[in-house]
Each structure stands twice: as structure tokens, then as C-alpha cells.
Write a protein that binds this DNA or RNA. Structure first.
Lengths: 328, 328
DNA sequence: TTGTATGCGTTATCAT
DNA sequence: ATGATAACGCATACAA
């Protein structure tokens, strides 16, 4: 390659790296020769020399044995936006799906495969968070969905979103609004969402009420059963705030199957903005995180950490998506 | 590291690589020292030396400007299963999302970033396929969704799936079954699905009929309009086979909004197994590809190509998912 | 079974 | 503005 361009190997390296000390004619000759020979810099050699990899690892934690197709679409969107954000900042992304102790692995830095790591998962896979929490000091990583406050996290502004949802229902004239969810779930966000709901209710001089979900069931079933329990308890209500869309959709199904009219008799609002919500009858009003901002924030924080700088924000903004399950 | 274990650097290398010529006591000492120092092999140096990268690139082609959340969930599932399959065969995956000529890039081999490439996309992004089709000779790659027969593709067994769908409707007593789709779309699969439908109809002694979709609209709108046109044409029908779920869902909406009862008056079947189909009213009967097999096949073909071996199969099996849009 | 020596293709330092 | 040269950390051929 060097001789094809009639220059030394160092000149080739500099020309291709955009070093300003190389004259334009020389650079042009080098670039032409490279095109002719279909030459490209060997990344491994370059990285070996530089010490930096220019790559971020992205670990997706799934539930063991979970059908990947059932993964919440938000996570896939987040995967995509994280890749895009990394790419926009000049990083490549090495993606790994990990689901159980046999394949948990986070030594990307030691192996110089990546400069840092984004870990995305639901808080349910506690074994995974145990593993990643114990990685050696000096590991650069940021996570989405971890149950622990100790980890370097980025997450939705759950409380603001829940307040948004609750206030929306209040404005639309619903008064006896019940929250279906949990304050003790490892899903920390559920607690934050309940808190937001409770704050909005109290601001309006109303009493918050939590209808608890049963543990260990699919989300939709949890919502369905909680709604059934609520109805059977005889407690009057005209609004339901589900701490996740799947829970809200389950509640919605239970309500309509029992003859409640939504949104006339009861308003329902969820949280997450899953696709299925747009297809339910009526379509579900919900709160959605901006997954593009989420990806950017994850990448920005990670890059800051790698560079030893001050990290940026860690809360992802949310917005209300008004559909048909709350009256106009 | 070598001196910490009291052996030479080559012994360290061999011990960690599992070379059988190393005695157990020595290996043990090396491994202990590595654990103590949190030492891991530098992948860049190893690859530079070996020449192989042990990595596959996965390029996801999206529509320019498309909201990543609107990407068909099947593609995300395929992304996941491809990563999983690669990982099961000892490869890592470097993921890139590419959507327009400014960021098309496929020189992973030249840069020794990967040994080969899986390209996944919809046939609509013709600029992308132009780009990848022109990559230099010797590029190892396999694709999903390309419009050209010339490329090394893996795809669903569309014809068999369409026959499955059509025969299912015939068995359930529908006779005047119309296909909503196209034989000329760049989506090659649409043609294959129409062919399968037509074959099944002819086998049953019935006349196939294609209600063409209009170009350039969102799929659901295409389905909706085609159904409207079909109804207005006065042609009698009691069954609709949509060449994609989104098209079928659009048709389903149009039918019910016009007072047709599904599945009593008209049966509807789609193709793809998208999530939204499970939530429609009634839920959509459909044909689903096994995305796990798809990921495996892509990876297997690619690895075979890298090794210069005979490629394996290229057709992914499909199965019928009976839901509520066809009568019992 | 282990050690010695070499080179993979870069980037960076020091000359010129 | 460019060339010569020295690492970077490993895997492997060869020697012992």
C-alpha cells in the first residue's frame, strides 16, 4: 500500500487519519491508491496501538427463557436509539443479549473490546443486576432498569409522568381515581409512578388509593385481576391509572367485559406507550418516554464517565399520549 | 502478568487458550494470577495476530427518517435471535443501524472489524440494496429482505405459508377468497405469498383473485383502501387473505366499520405475526415465521460462506396462528 | 512441557 | 512535510 502510493507507511497513516501536516497533493495520491486497492485501515492494529477501542458494549438483559418477541418494544426502541446515539458520537456498538448466570459477562474493558458498557434490562432479572453490580472498580457503565439506586442509572421521569396522567384525568372530570400497581415491586419505577399519582391526587385534595397487583403473574393478568378485585370490593371509582400499559390494558379488558363503559363510566390511563395500546378498544391513553432522549442520555453519561467528566442528566422526559380511554 | 505467574509470556498465552501441552499445575498458577490481577486477554492484539476477528457485523436497514419504534417487531425479534445464534456459535455481533446513503457502510472485513455481515432490511430501501449489492467481490454477507434474487438471501417460506393460510380458510368453509396484495411490489415476498394463495385456490378448483394495493401508502391504509375498493366493486367475497398483517388489519377495520361481521360474514387472514394482530377485534389469524430459525439460518449461512463451505438451507419455516378472524 | 524469538499493521515519537 | 523507528500485546513456529 505504501509503495503503491510512493510514500512511506507513516505518511499513509497520517494521510488517512486526516493529519494536517500532510500536503494536499500527497493526501490525494494516498486516498486514490487506497481506493484503487480497496485498502482500509486494520482496526485491530489501530486499536492495539491507540489503546482506545471507540466501541461501546450494549448488554440487553432478558428474562431467562423469555421469548424474545415478547420483549417490551420499548426496549427494542431503546436498543435502536442507543446504537444510533453512539454512532452519532463516533462510537460503534457491540451488542450482547444475556439472560442467565452462565452467560453474564461484562469484561469488555479488560479485554479491550469496548471502552464502556450500557446495560439495559428489567429489574426482574435480579441475578443479572447482582452480577453487574459486582464488576471491578473502574468499570465504565450506565444502566437502564436496575433496581438499585447505587448503580449509575438513567431512567424515565416516572413521577412527572404519573402526575401528568393523573392531572389529565382530573381535568377530564374523573374524581375517584385508583392506582393499580405496587409500591414494593423491584420495579422501582412502579413506586415512583405511584408517588406521582399520589402527589397529584393530594394536590387536588383527593385521597389516593392503591389497588395492589398480585406477584408473579403476567402483567396483563395482574391488571385484570386487580380490576376484578377493585370492582368486587365495592369501592366506588371512576378512573384507573395503571402503572404500566400492560396492567392498564388488562384492567381495561376486565372493565369492558363486565359492562363498564370506557371512557364514559371509567377513564383508564397507562404508562409506557406500548404499541398494543394503540390497538385496544378503546385505544389507551398513556404516558410515553422519549426513547430517543433515553438512548442519548445513556450514551452521553457513559462517554462522560469514560472521559472522567461530570455526567449529564439522568432523567428522561415523558409526554402524555391522549387516546380514547379518557373522555374528551 | 507473566512474571506474576512466574512463567514466560508464551506460557501464559497457551495456558489461557487451553493449550493441551501445558501442565495442570502451571495452568492453575497462571489462571490464579490472572484472577488476582483481573487480567484478560487483549482482543485487539489477539486478533491482529490471528487475522480472524470472531465477530459478525449486523446491519439493520431502516427507512430513512422512520421512527425506530415503528419498525416491524419481527425485525427486532430477528435482530435478537441473530445475536443469540451468533453468540451460540462463538461469534460476537457488531450492530449498526443504517438508513441513508450518508451512512451506508459495509467494509467490515477490510477493516477487520468482522469476518462477515448480516444485512437485515425491508426491500423498500432500494438505495441500501444498491449499495450493498455493489460491495467488493469476496465480501461475506447474507441478507434478509432484499428485493434481488442475486443476493445471498434467507427468507420465509412465503409460498408454503400462503398455502397454509388459504387452505385454512377453505377448510373453514370460505370459498370466495380474495387476496389483497401485489405481484409487482419490490417486496418479493408479496409475490410469493400471492403465488401460494393462487396455487391453493387452484388446487381447490377455485379462481384466485388479486385486489391490488395502491403504492406509496402506509400498509394499513393500503389494506383499508383495497378492502373499500373490493366492496365497492360489487364482487362477491367471503374471505380475505392479506399479504401482510398490517394490510390485513387495515382491511379488517374497513370491513367492520362497514358492518361486515368477522369472522361470520367474512374471514380474514394475515401474514407476519405482528403483535398488534393479537389485539385487534377480532384477533387476527395469521402466518408467522419462526424468527429463531431465521436468525440461525442467517448466521449459519454466513459462517459457511466465511469458511468457504456449502451453505445450508435458505427458507425459514412458517406456521399458522389461528385466532378469531376466521370462524371455527 | 516450557522458553525464545518473530511479526501481525498500526500510531506516535523523533528525526530530517 | 515526510521518513525511519519503536512500541502496542498477543499467538505461534521453532528450539530446548
Amino acid at each position: 500500500m505504501a509503495e503503491a502510493a510512493g510514500v512511506s507507511q507513516s505518511t499513509v497513516s497520517r494521510a488517512l487519519a486526516g493529519d494536517t501536516s500532510i500536503s494536499e497533493p500527497t493526501r490525494k495520491r494516498v486516498i486514490e491508491a487506497a481506493a484503487r486497492l480497496n485498502y482500509q485501515v486494520d482496526e485491530n492494529a489501530a486499536r492495539l496501538r491507540r489503546g482506545r477501542t471507540g466501541t461501546l458494549a450494549l448488554v440487553m438483559i432478558c428474562r431467562p427463557g423469555q421469548d424474545r418477541k415478547d420483549l417490551n418494544p420499548f426496549y427494542f426502541a431503546l436498543l435502536g436509539s442507543t446504537c444510533a446515539a453512539a454512532s452519532a458520537r463516533g462510537y460503534e456498538v457491540l451488542v450482547a443479549f444475556q439472560d442467565s448466570p452462565e452467560n453474564f459477562w461484562g469484561h469488555y474493558q479488560e479485554r479491550r473490546k469496548a471502552d464502556g458498557m450500557v446495560v439495559i434490562g428489567t429489574s426482574e432479572n435480579t441475578a443479572a443486576w447482582d452480577y453487574f453490580g459486582k464488576l471491578p472498580e473502574g468499570t465504565n457503565w450506565v444502566c437502564w432498569g436496575a433496581p438499585s439506586e447505587e448503580f449509575p442509572w438513567v431512567r424515565s421521569d416516572n413521577q412527572a409522568g404519573a402526575m401528568l396522567a393523573t392531572r389529565h384525568m382530573l381535568v377530564r372530570g374523573y374524581r375517584s381515581i385508583v392506582c393499580i400497581g405496587s409500591e414494593t415491586s423491584p420495579q422501582r419505577q412502579f413506586k415512583e409512578r405511584f408517588d406521582g399519582y399520589a402527589a397529584a391526587m393530594q394536590d387536588a385534595g383527593l385521597e389516593p388509593f392503591l389497588q395492589r397487583i398480585e406477584r408473579g403473574l403476567p402483567r396483563e393478568e395482574q391488571g385484570r385481576r386487580a380490576a376484578a378485585a377493585l370492582i368486587e370490593s365495592g369501592r366506588p371509582f371512576d378512573g384507573i391509572f395503571g402503572v404500566s400499559d400492560e396492567i392498564a390494558l388488562g384492567a381495561l379488558k376486565e372493565l369492558t367485559s363486565r359492562g363498564f363503559r370506557v371512557p364514559e363510566d371509567v377513564g383508564v390511563v397507562g404508562f409506557d406507550g406500548v404499541r398494543a395500546g394503540a390497538w385496544s378498544i378503546p385505544p389507551l391513553t398513556t404516558v410515553e418516554s422519549d426513547f430517543e432522549v433515553a438512548g442519548s442520555l445513556l450514551v452521553d453519561r457513559l462517554i462522560a464517565m469514560i472521559g472522567g467528566q461530570e455526567p449529564s442528566s439522568r432523567r428522561v422526559p415523558v409526554r402524555l399520549v391522549v387516546r380514547g380511554s379518557t373522555r374528551a
